[in-house]
Design a protein around this nucleic acid. Structure first.
Lengths: 355, 355
DNA sequence: CCCGATAATGTATTCGTAGTCATTTCCGGT
DNA sequence: ACCGGAAATGACTACGAATACATTATCGGG
């Protein structure tokens, strides 16, 4: 008994078997499979009949091997515990599925980008969407930026020459600042984080700059830099801010979970939101709209960002040497109960800078 | 110019190139790559040097083709908007990564199980974990249960002969009922859902049976069957229940998001939790522990369930004709503020049935 | 120092598909 | 009926890694 070289996933039905049964050549079977127009309808039908009867499925490995592409796209995600990221993953998956591509997922918490980059080099995937890069240097070493099928989504790495898509975080921070000031908030605080991600840095910077420009400014004691972006961090941060002699009357948190932590922490100390304290988040995750939080926040155009990223990636796979593109989409301030549902006076929405 | 047959992902470095550069045969290169012990250390070193210099990566398609396996596992997920599922996906991804397997993800909201099953038959993946099956019949048709590398996670389909892993939902429902009764709740209600998933059915049934057994029972007007499992559904449900002449003093919701919706809805109507109303959820998603909800709920042993599912799947891939296994793990009641942090009197924890 | 056993390495082949190129079939116009 | 050109089909091969089998190198014991 000759030991089979490998398990045939399909019960060993190959295009040759189909050819024999349909009394055509294997080449013709291949043509039918690939919808090649130069097959006579009668022949096509005969082959299709056999294909259906045998429940044939082409061997994907052989096909990928021969065709030189995998029809799969790699996606590196992180922190799936933060609702924004599953939502993004869902959007990516849906759009890729619509385009007939499979999605291979890696969590950067376990090995960073390296496994995805290796998969790209091995041809497991045709391209990679990096939605988070734990240590940016890691993949910078691995991939020569030159024409690599890599796109950064929701992240900007200025010195890396790949396609990149994000929303305008500077502008998002600016919007929040202008909104709070326009609504008459006087003591405005910021809960930020270790700026390992450019997105966070930009939100903070846009916020600060706008406050400066509006003559309000952000005193150091009104800035809290949390280690991570968790609910507990938000609670901790708000506790500190409320211990101040003159506690803030509004806090901008650079993401929604921090904001919810801040809200829970503030309430635990007896403060009422929004009566005593306004809180603004960032991302508009699903929970933000729920009654318990009803959080004013900044919404990123997720679907469009994903669409752009995928477009860029597929174009790049097609044409490796096209110039790289950096897309930056506009955000939207969603006003809810955590700021008393108060719209800004008309004057506030005066200009729309595009940095 | 001869058109290249396919894009070589690696810049066209093949094991033959390595062989030439290291002055050995391609077979020896392959042996080094696969850690075959019968290569002399000196030779191995020479080859490894060239491998490193050229930054060679084996062509995954060719390897998969030849070896007959993809080293990838498919995972079908659904409703990533419900935090439990990203958490599960994260656990699956981490464990698969540790075992050197890639994870291809499909969202059953877009095409059901069919794409995953097709991928299995094409050899794109070596096995499939189904964490949700929109329409069970769909894949029942497609896959002969006989020895297919398919495992159901968090779902039981009694008449389908595949490996299956879940937690004991009947027992989970029972625990909640016994807890509420033991703590003296008198008017106990249930917010359930359309039972298209066996898990939900079991939670409800375990809850009902225990109430019956304890002589409390569940009157029809204390049962609300919601269409879906969203926050809005929970709000709607609790509104109905609170309109009753004699509103409940405790509500069990078959998942956490329903429970949070119920809590927000109850508060919106002026009820205080837990003073006026106890609420219990199911799943212990991350938010359940946050201050705004602080929800008593039932926690499933997610990591262990995932581990079991992967074990079963990999065993099955290895040994197609082993008898199928149905694993059912025990749950845990997590008591929090939504039930006043009240522990049940000792008498309540009398027996541990294993159905 | 040679023999035989064993370790190390090389040679040749295989996997299934999708191409290229060669050949046959078809069909309309005469 | 015949011819020519186009359409349809078939024969053959390449892709890259892994492995069975063949061959060569190595080394210990006599």
């Amino acid at each position: 008994m000759g030991k089979a070289t490998g398990a045939k996933p399909n019960g060993s039905v190959t295009s040759h078997d189909i050819a024999r049964l349909a009394q055509v050549s294997q080449a013709t079977v291949s043509r039918v499979l690939r919808d090649d127009p130069k097959v006579r309808p009668a022949t096509r039908e005969r082959v299709m009949k056999v294909l259906a009867e045998t429940r044939y499925e082409p061997n994907a490995a052989a096909r990928a091997f021969r065709a030189g592409r995998a029809d799969s796209i790699g996606v590196v995600v992180a922190r799936l515990s933060y609702q924004l990221y599953p939502a993004m993953l869902e959007a990516i998956g849906a759009q890729l599925a619509r385009l007939g591509r499979r999605m291979i997922v890696w969590d950067s918490d376990h090995g960073g980008d390296a496994p995805a980059i290796r998969a790209l080099r091995q041809g497991v995937v045709d391209g990679v969407i990096l939605t988070a890069a734990t240590s940016e240097s890691e993949f910078l070493r691995e991939v020569p930026a030159e024409g690599s099928a890599v796109v950064l989504l929701n992240r900007i790495v200025a010195d890396y020459a790949s396609d990149q898509v994000s929303s305008d975080n500077l502008d998002g921070g600016r919007r929040v600042a202008e909104y709070l000031v326009a609504c008459g908030r006087k003591r405005i605080a910021l809960i930020g984080g270790i700026p390992r991600a450019s997105t966070i840095r930009d939100r903070e910077q846009g916020f600060r700059k706008a406050l400066d420009r509006l003559g309000v400014g952000l005193p150091p004691h009104y800035y809290f830099r949390s280690e991570n972006f968790t609910h507990a961090n938000g609670e901790q941060a708000v506790t500190r801010l409320m211990e101040l002699a003159s506690p803030p009357d509004a806090i901008f948190c650079v993401n929604d979970v921090l904001a919810m932590g801040a809200m829970d922490g503030a309430r635990a100390r007896g403060a009422r939101v929004p009566d005593d304290l306004w809180i603004v988040g960032y991302d508009d995750i699903e929970i933000a709209s729920w009654g318990a939080y009803d959080l004013t926040t900044v919404r990123q155009p997720m679907e469009r960002m994903v669409g752009q990223a995928i477009d860029l990636l597929l174009s790049r796979i097609d044409k490796r040497d096209a110039p790289v593109a950096h897309k930056c989409l506009a955000n939207e301030l969603v006003i809810r109960g955590s700021t008393g549902r108060q719209s800004p006076p008309a004057a506030a929405s005066r200009k729309k800078p595009r940095p």
